[in-house]
C-alpha cells in the first residue's frame, strides 16, 4: 500500500492550484523515494514536472511502485475541502481504484476522509536531457508574476533576454510596446528579494505569455523562481518546494519560420 502524511497540507493544495488548469489528467507516480509527476498540457507545448520527496513527509510508506491516475480538477475539488492548516494524508491500496485524502485539523478535533475515484491513464514519460543552461536567473517569484501579468495585457509573446547585467522581458502589441529590465541585485536585506544572474553566454528567446502566466499560479509555493535558458531550448521555470522537491515547468520557445 501507499501512504504519505504531509504536515504542511497547504503545500499540496498549492501544487494543485498551480497545475490544475494546465494539465487535465495525470499519473502520480509513487515509489519509496516519493511522489513524482510528469505531464504535458493538451497542446503539447509545455511540460510539468513535480517531485515531492519521501523525506518531506512526516510519514511515508510505499510498498510497491504505483501510478495513481488522477483528474486534477477533481483532486482540486477534494483538496479545497481541507483547511489551510490541516495535515493531509494520501492513501491508496496496491490494487485499488480509489485514493483517500484524510484531513486532520491542527488540534486533531476534526478528521475528514474523502475518497476519490482513480482512472487508468496511459502516459509515456519524456526523457529530459541534462543541460548546461547558458543563463540561469533567480528572482523573486512575485516580481516574475507581476511582469508576466503586466506584459500579457499588452502582447501575446515575450522576448526574454539575459545578459550579465540582468534579465529583460519585452513584448509588443496593437497598443504599443513594453520592455522591463531586472538588474542583478544581491545587495538587498532579504535573500528572497535578490535577483541573481549566472551566465555563460547571452541568450534571447521568445515565449507565449499565456503559458508563462499559467506557470505563475505556482508563486505561492516559493518566494523565488529560477529561470533557465539556452538557445533554441525550452525555458525551465522552477519553483522549489521547501524540504520536498520542486515544481518545474518547461515551455517550448517560438522560433522564426
Amino acid at each position: 500500500m501507499f501512504e504519505g502524511r504531509l504536515l504542511q497540507g497547504s503545500l499540496l493544495k498549492k501544487v494543485l492550484e498551480a497545475i490544475k488548469d494546465l494539465v487535465t489528467d495525470t499519473n502520480f507516480d509513487c515509489s519509496e523515494t516519493g511522489i513524482a509527476l510528469q505531464a504535458m498540457d493538451s497542446s503539447h507545448v509545455a511540460l510539468v514536472s513535480l517531485l515531492l520527496k519521501d523525506t518531506g513527509f512526516d510519514h511515508f510508506r510505499c510498498d510497491r511502485n504505483l501510478a495513481l491516475g488522477i483528474n486534477l480538477q477533481n483532486m482540486s475539488k477534494m483538496l479545497k475541502c481541507a483547511g489551510n492548516d490541516d495535515i493531509i494524508t494520501l492513501k491508496a491500496e496496491d490494487e485499488g481504484d480509489t485514493i483517500t485524502f484524510m484531513f486532520e485539523s491542527p488540534n486533531q478535533d476534526k478528521i475528514s476522509d474523502f475518497e476519490m475515484k482513480l482512472m487508468d491513464i496511459d502516459s509515456e514519460h519524456l526523457g529530459i536531457p541534462d543541460t548546461d543552461y547558458q543563463a540561469i536567473v533567480t528572482m523573486p517569484s512575485a516580481e516574475f508574476q507581476r511582469i508576466v501579468r503586466d506584459l500579457s495585457s499588452i502582447g501575446d509573446t515575450a522576448v526574454i533576454g539575459v545578459t550579465k547585467e540582468g534579465i529583460s522581458f519585452s513584448t509588443g502589441g496593437d497598443i504599443g510596446k513594453a520592455n522591463i529590465v531586472c538588474r542583478q541585485n544581491t545587495n538587498v536585506d532579504k535573500e528572497e528579494d535578490q535577483t541573481t544572474v549566472e551566465i555563460h553566454e547571452p541568450v534571447s528567446l521568445t515565449f507565449a505569455l499565456r503559458y508563462l502566466n499559467s506557470f505563475t499560479k505556482a508563486t505561492a509555493l516559493s518566494p523565488q523562481v529560477t529561470l533557465s535558458l539556452s538557445k533554441e531550448l525550452p525555458i525551465v521555470v522552477e519553483y522549489k518546494i521547501e524540504k520536498m522537491g520542486f515544481l518545474r515547468f518547461y515551455l517550448a520557445p517560438k522560433i522564426e519560420e
Binding site: H44, A46, E124, L126, P253
Partner: peptide, 13 residues
C-alpha cells in the same frame, strides 16, 4: 513565429 512542440526537444522512451 512558429510555436514549437515540447516533444521535439525531449525524447519519448
Amino acid at each position: 513565429m512558429a510555436q514549437k512542440g515540447i516533444t521535439s526537444f525531449f525524447q519519448a522512451p
